[in-house]
Simulated scan of single mutants.
Amino acid sequence: MKQSAILFFVLFMFGCQKASNHTETTPKVKNAEIIEQKTVEPNREINCEEFFRKVVLSSNLSAVKNYKDIFVRIESSSDEKIVLELYVKNNLSESSKNQQIVENAVAWLNFIPASEKLFDITADPEEPLEVSFNRELLTKYDFKTLCGIRAKKSVKPVNNNLKTNCKEITGEMLSGEECIISTNSLEAVYNEIVEKSLVRDSEFLLKKLPKINTSQKINKNGIVEISYKVSKNSVIIEMFYEGGITDVELYRQDQSVKRKIVYNAD
């Protein structure tokens, strides 16, 4: 009888232990499920300024490192350029109840939608500095839709086969190229030179061909001055360097234009 009582007690305790283990493991599974659900962040639509704040914070701009909280404001926006103002907020009041918040601009940026490039214009708008940023943001967000940028109408590309009878120009202290272009438009040939950077330092040329003779002081990149001599059937451009001259000559010939580019060294 005594042995039966002991056996019954052992079986009873073993059964209670199994029940206890079962009740302890069930809540742990539920807690794991709850934690996993909390880590999932819902997708949220952002606006144009929030998009550019993400861009700015991912950039190598020095202001991002120098200031803890940076705000981004769109100063102006067009299909060609978006101007961004970066600023911080300072509380000048000593009272926590009546705060006096003052905004201070710390940087100015230009974003070019066509090239999807960001430029720092804080020091000198005429000489912007390209800023690198996380370009994956451009694929993650449709910034053109967020910022209301209209897609440009497709423009017929310039036919690279317009150049015919090109020949190289060589000589003592000079080099270049002479080509016959199958168009009678001096302006079209000039635009191609500027847009395709067919001449060294073409970024310093006027964006549009002038109608009259003119000259422009440059004093950058070793370029002193650029002069334009314009007539009905010819355009002669001289780019004066500290160590030489680049000549660009365009001559209308019936239904074509002869384009001559020569680099002369002193």
Rank of each mutant, 00 (worst) to 15 (best):
F51T: 05
S59T: 07
L86V: 08
F71Q: 04
Q99V: 15
K18R: 11
K68C: 00
T23S: 12
S58I: 03
F52T: 01
P27V: 06
V64I: 06
K54C: 02
S20H: 10
S62W: 00
S96N: 15
S78G: 12
S78D: 11
A32N: 15
N66R: 11
I34F: 05
F14N: 05
E85G: 11
N31L: 12
Q99A: 08
I70M: 05
E33V: 05
K89H: 04
E50L: 10
S58Y: 02
I74D: 02
T26L: 14
Q17F: 15
N21G: 12
T26N: 09
G15L: 04
P42N: 12
I34Q: 08
A19V: 12
Q17A: 14
K81M: 13
N47M: 07
M13Q: 09
A19M: 06
S20G: 05
Q17W: 10
N90F: 06
V88G: 01
V29R: 14
S62T: 13
S78M: 06
A19K: 00
E94V: 13
N98F: 09
R53F: 02
V64S: 01
L57G: 03
N31E: 14
E36H: 11
R73D: 11
K65S: 11
V83S: 07
R73A: 03
A63S: 14
V40N: 12
K18Y: 12
Y67R: 01
T23L: 13
E49M: 07
K38L: 15
S77E: 04
K30T: 09
S58K: 02
E41C: 01
H22K: 15
G15M: 09
N98A: 06
T39L: 14
F71H: 10
F12N: 06
T23C: 06
K30W: 04
Y87G: 06
F71M: 06
E94L: 12
E94C: 08
H22I: 10
K18T: 07
A63I: 09
K81Q: 08
Y87V: 03
E33L: 10
I34N: 08
E36R: 12
R73I: 01
S93T: 07
G15F: 09
S76W: 03
S62C: 03
S96M: 10
I35Q: 12
D79F: 02
E80C: 03
F14H: 05
C16R: 06
E50W: 04
A63N: 01
F52S: 03
I82E: 01
S62P: 01
F14I: 14
F71L: 07
N47D: 15
E24V: 12
F71T: 02
Q17G: 05
N43R: 08
R44W: 08
S62K: 14
V83H: 04
I46L: 06
F12G: 08
E85K: 09
E45M: 10
N60V: 03
I70P: 04
S59W: 04
Q37Y: 10
E80N: 15
E24L: 09
N98P: 00
T25C: 00
S20W: 08
E45A: 15
T25V: 09
R73P: 00
N91R: 03
L57E: 13
T26V: 11
K89Y: 04
